[in-house]
Design a protein around this nucleic acid. Structure first.
Lengths: 360, 360
DNA sequence: CTGTTAGCGCGTTCAA
DNA sequence: TTGAACGCGCTAACAG
C-alpha cells in the first residue's frame, strides 16, 4: 500500500530540516554559489532523508531554460528517423538535455500544432523534419523568437536556418548513373510523394523540381532527370511514381510499372520502406530481380543484406545526421552566431545484388 | 536578420493592450472561467497582434500538471520499441499530452538517471520498459510518489504497477511446440541476453528462470524448456545462447551453434534483429534455411516476408501494446484506482517458409 | 462577468 | 559564507 506523497518536499522543507536558510539549502542542492562543508553536509543529509527531488519546472521558470529540445519528426515508423532519433538522443543526453518528441505522421496540421506546443513548452531548441508542405512562416516565427532551429533531412526554400542532410540531387544522380552505366535506358523512380506532388514530379521540368518546397523529393527527382537527360534519354512521365510513401503504395507502384506497355528495366526507390514495397511488387508481378528488373534504393537497412536479392543501396549516414543536428543546435545554444550552416554529409553506394544488366 | 525577441509577451502585456485585467485576459487565453464575448474578442485580438504564446512552464508551476508523459525505452533501435512508441505517441497526443523520451540503451545507470530526470521534470505519468536488471526500489519510489507507472513488455517481480505485454511463456511454448510438431528434437534459442544472464538461462531450471528479474528472457526461456521437456527431450545448455542482443551477436551465435558437435536442427530467436542475425549467421556457416536448419523468431517486421526464406514468426501486436499502455496510464490519471492491471495481449504465429521438417 | 491579490518552488539579487 | 526578500508567468480564490 503506497502512501501517495502528493505534496512533494521543497527546498524550504529541506532548509528547515537542516536548520539553515532556504538560500543556503538551494545553493547546496543546486550546486551554485558557495556553501560551507558543514552546511552542505547538513543539507544533503536532510534532502536524502526527506526524499527531495529538484523541481525542474520551478527552475525553468526562473532560469528561462528548460533544458529540453523539441524534436518533430515526420514519421517515427520510418527507419531513417529512428536512427536519426538515436543520434540526436545520444548527443543531447550527454549534454544534459532532454527530448520532447512529436510525430507529425506527415500531416501539416499536426506539424503546426506541434510547433505551437514546442513554443509554449519553451524548449531551448528545435530539431525538425518538416513535412513536404511545411508552413515556412510559422517556422521562421519560431526561429525569430530566439529558439534555434535545425532542419533535418529537408531544407526549406527561403528559410535561413541550419540544416543537416545529404546532397540529395547528387545522390540520386549517382544512383541513376550507376544504372545507366550498366546499360539501363528505361529507369523508373518510386518517389513516395503523394498525389499532390504527382503532377510536379512527373513534369520533367528540372527547374521547377528544384524549386519544390519538398526539397527531398524534388531534388532527388531532379538528379534523376539530369542524369537520364545527360545520357540522351527522353523523360517518360509514367516512370515517375508518386502514389504515397507506405510500403503498400510502393508495392502497388511496382506492379503497375510492370504493366506498362514499355515497362522499366530498372527502378530506383527513395527510402527503405519503399525499397521493400517495390521488391514485393516485383514478386507479385512475377518478375525476377535483378534478372528482369534491377532495383536500387535509398537508405541502408539491417535487412538489406538478407533480402532476396540483397539490395544495392545509397546509404545515408543516418545516425550521424541526427548527432550532427544535435551538435549544431548545442553550438547555437552555446552562442555560436554565424550564418546558417547547411551540413551535407556524404552518402555511400553499397553494391550488392539487386542491380544487373538489363535483359536482352 | 531576425530581431530576436528574447523577452516574450505575457498575459499581463496582453491584458494591458486589451484594456482588461490580467485575470480576464488569462481566462480568455487559457479557456477557463467565463468571459464576455466582447472581452474575449479584445483579448484575442491583442494576443494575435502581440504574438502571445502561452507559457506551459508557468502554467504547470501552478496547476501541478505538466501534461507530459515520460517514456523510457530500453533501445530505440529495436523495432519493437519503435512501434510501441508510435502507439504511445498516437494516443497521448490525442489526449493532449506530450512525450518526454529517454533511451537507456539497456544501461541500468542511464535508467536510474532517466528516472530521476522524469521525476524532477514532474511528468504526469511514466511508461517504462525496464532494463533486465531494473532498480525495483527506485521505480517503486516513483510510483509511490504519486506518478502512475505503466511497465512495457516486461514485468518486475514484487512491483505492483500496471503492465502491458504478451504472455511470454505461452508464446515461446507455442513456438517451440510448433517446431516439435514438425519433428525437431534439437532446438536452440538465441535469447539476446547478456553474459550476466548466461548461466541462469542455461541452467535449465524452470523455477529459477521464472524468478529471474528479467521476465522476458526468463519466461520465454522457461516456456521453451517446458515444451521440450514435455516432449521428453533433455535440456542441452549449449542450445541456450546469451551472448548479447545485437544483430552481430546473433550472427555469431548462429555460426557457433552450427559448429557444435551436434548442431541444432531448429533455432528460435527472441526479437526481430536477432532473427536477422541468425539468418545471416546461417548463411555464413553455409547452411541452408529451412532445408538444413529451421528458424522461428519473435516479432514480425516489414521485411520478414521478403527475406530469403520468408520468416515464420510470433508476431506481437506491438503498436497496440503501446497504445494500450498509454490508455491505461490515462485511465490512472483520470482517477481510476483499482488493483494493478497486467494486460496480456494475444500473439499470432505467422507461418511462412523458414520452418521445415528436419533433414533426414 | 470582472478585477485584485496571493503564491506555486526556486534562483537571484543585496546586505549582513 | 549566509539570510531575507523579490519575482519568473500564471491560475485560483474571493470579492465586487
Amino acid at each position: 500500500m503506497a502512501s501517495e506523497v502528493r505534496s512533494r518536499v521543497t527546498v524550504i522543507d529541506v532548509a528547515r530540516a537542516a536548520g539553515v536558510s532556504v538560500a543556503t539549502a538551494a545553493r547546496a542542492l543546486g550546486g551554485y554559489g558557495s556553501v560551507s562543508q558543514a552546511s552542505r553536509r547538513k543539507v544533503d543529509e536532510a534532502a536524502a532523508r526527506l526524499g527531495y527531488t529538484p523541481n525542474m519546472v520551478a527552475r525553468s521558470m526562473i532560469t528561462g531554460s528548460t533544458k529540453t529540445i523539441g524534436v518533430i519528426v515526420a514519421d517515427i515508423e520510418n527507419q531513417f528517423f529512428q536512427l536519426v532519433l538515436r543520434g540526436v538522443s545520444r548527443v543531447l543526453s550527454e549534454a544534459g538535455f532532454d527530448l520532447v518528441l512529436a510525430n507529425t505522421e506527415e500531416s501539416i496540421e499536426v506539424e503546426r500544432r506541434s510547433l505551437r506546443v514546442m513554443t509554449s513548452r519553451r524548449v531551448d531548441g528545435l530539431i525538425l523534419s518538416p513535412t513536404e508542405v511545411a508552413d515556412v512562416a510559422q517556422i521562421r516565427a519560431v526561429a525569430d523568437s530566439g529558439i534555434p532551429v535545425v532542419l533535418l533531412d529537408r531544407r526549406l526554400r527561403g528559410l535561413k536556418v541550419d540544416s543537416v542532410g545529404i546532397r540529395n540531387r547528387a545522390a540520386s544522380h549517382e544512383a541513376t548513373t550507376y544504372l545507366l552505366d550498366r546499360g539501363h535506358r528505361q529507369i523508373a523512380v518510386v518517389t513516395g510523394g503523394g498525389a499532390e506532388h504527382a503532377e510536379e514530379l512527373r513534369s520533367g521540368n528540372v527547374g521547377r523540381l528544384r524549386r519544390m518546397s519538398a526539397t527531398t523529393l524534388g531534388t532527388r527527382t531532379a538528379g534523376y532527370l539530369e542524369a537520364i537527360e545527360a545520357a540522351g534519354i527522353a523523360h517518360v512521365p509514367d516512370y515517375v511514381v508518386a502514389n504515397g510513401f507506405r510500403q503498400s503504395d510502393a508495392r502497388t507502384a511496382a506492379r503497375e510499372l510492370m504493366r506498362l506497355p514499355q515497362p522499366p528495366t530498372a527502378i530506383m526507390a527513395f527510402d527503405s520502406l519503399l525499397n521493400l514495397g517495390v521488391l514485393q511488387g516485383l514478386g507479385d508481378a512475377g518478375v525476377r530481380c535483378p534478372d528482369q528488373v534491377s532495383l536500387i534504393g535509398f537508405d541502408d537497412a539491417p535487412w538489406a543484406e538478407v533480402v532476396d536479392p540483397p539490395l544495392t543501396v545509397i546509404a545515408q549516414p543516418t545516425e550521424e545526421i541526427g548527432a550532427l543536428a544535435a551538435r549544431q543546435l548545442l553550438d547555437r545554444l552555446g552562442g555560436e552566431s554565424g550564418a546558417p550552416m547547411n551540413h551535407r554529409l556524404p552518402v555511400r553506394l553499397i553494391e550488392r545484388q539487386s542491380v544487373a544488366r538489363p535483359p536482352g
